[in-house]
Each structure stands twice: as structure tokens, then as C-alpha cells.
Amino acid sequence: MSYIFLYALVGMGLFTLGLYALIIHAHLLRKILAINIMGSGVFLVLVALAARTEGAAPDPVPHAMVITGIVVAVSATALALALMLRVRSETGRAELDEEPLSKFDD
């Protein structure tokens, strides 16, 4: 038991919070923020597991994955924001509602 597990636990908490917020919020920008926080939680767990042996140098492979993941997360965020603005200009609002497809039909 060391401080590494503390960070892994925090990562799990972040993932759970993000998942919950992703489900309950209707606004698309909030969903994007929630996905970002979920991603941060996953990264935190990965890096914490990479450093799990105390004293030894951390495993470089998860680090490389996480760095790639951070870059991909930013690109995905930019794409999602662009899509959100598109939805906004099509439907006049940036929130999902009960019948999300009805407004895109015409």
C-alpha cells in the first residue's frame, strides 16, 4: 500500500464522476467536459499502475500510451466541439432532448 494506490483510486473516482455526468446532463458541452474528465481518470489509473513498484523506474509503455491518449483526447474534443456547433446551427440549441432524431429528419 503506497501513495500510488491513492492516485489509482482518485482516477477511478474521476471516471465514475465523469460517467455519471455524461449520463445525466443534456447539454453537449457538459457531455464533452464529462468525457474529458473520464479520460483523465483512465490516464491517472494507467500511470499509477505504471509506477506501482516502489523504487524502480516506472514502466515507459503506459506513459507512451497516455501521452498518445492525451493528444487524441484533445483532437477528439476539438472535433466534438465542432460537431456541437454544427448541431447548434442546425437545431438552434446545443442540448439533446427526448426525441433527438426528430429534428434532423427534415
Partner: peptide, 18 residues
């Protein structure tokens, strides 16, 4: 947090991007 987990490379990416 990355810094405390001995991952300065990840911290660099997070600082630049985050």
C-alpha cells in the same frame, strides 16, 4: 499529479495541451 507519479513526460504533454 503526473509529477508526483514520476511521469514528467506526461506532465509536459498535459501542460502543453491541458
Amino acid at each position: 499529479a503526473w509529477v508526483r507519479l514520476e511521469a514528467p513526460d506526461v506532465a509536459l504533454a498535459e501542460a502543453a495541451i491541458g
